Computed example of a mutant assay.
Amino acid sequence: MSTATSPSSSSLCSGGICWVTMHTKGSPCCCSFDDYKLTTEWLLNQTAHRPKVAVICGSGLGLLADRATNKQTFRYQDIPNFPISTVPGHEGCLVFGLFGETPCVFMKGHFHLYEGYSLCQVTFPVRIFKLMGVESVLVINACGGLCSDFQVGDIMIIKDHINLPGFAGQHPLCGPNDERFGIRFPCMSDAYSKDLRALVGQVGQELGVRDLIREGVYCMVSGPNFETVAEARMLMVLGCDSVGMSMVPEVTVAKHCGLRVLGLSLVTNKVSLDYSREEKPNHDEVLEICEMRAEVLQKLITRLISRCQQQNINTH
Rank of each mutant, 00 (worst) to 15 (best):
D160I: 08
L264C: 15
G175I: 03
S148I: 08
P28K: 10
D154N: 10
L12E: 09
T252S: 11
G97Q: 05
C29I: 10
E206S: 08
S246W: 00
K130C: 05
K255V: 05
L44T: 05
T40P: 02
R210S: 09
Q121T: 07
F181L: 04
L304T: 05
V53W: 04
D190L: 12
M22P: 14
K255A: 05
V152D: 15
S222D: 11
V95S: 02
I213S: 00
F82N: 03
Q202G: 01
D195E: 08
M247P: 02
A48N: 15
F124K: 01
L207K: 12
V267F: 10
L297C: 13
P186A: 04
L212Y: 12
E206V: 00
D160E: 12
G258E: 08
V137C: 15
R307G: 03
I313D: 06
Q151L: 07
P28Y: 04
C143D: 02
A48L: 11
N177V: 12
Y192T: 02
Q310K: 11
M236K: 15
S272T: 14
E135F: 01
A142T: 15
Y117Q: 01
L287V: 06
V137P: 08
Q121E: 15
T86Q: 08
K159Y: 00
N269D: 13
I158A: 03
P165I: 02
I128C: 07
G15Y: 10
Q311V: 02
S9W: 11
S59M: 05
M1W: 10
Q309D: 14
V200R: 04
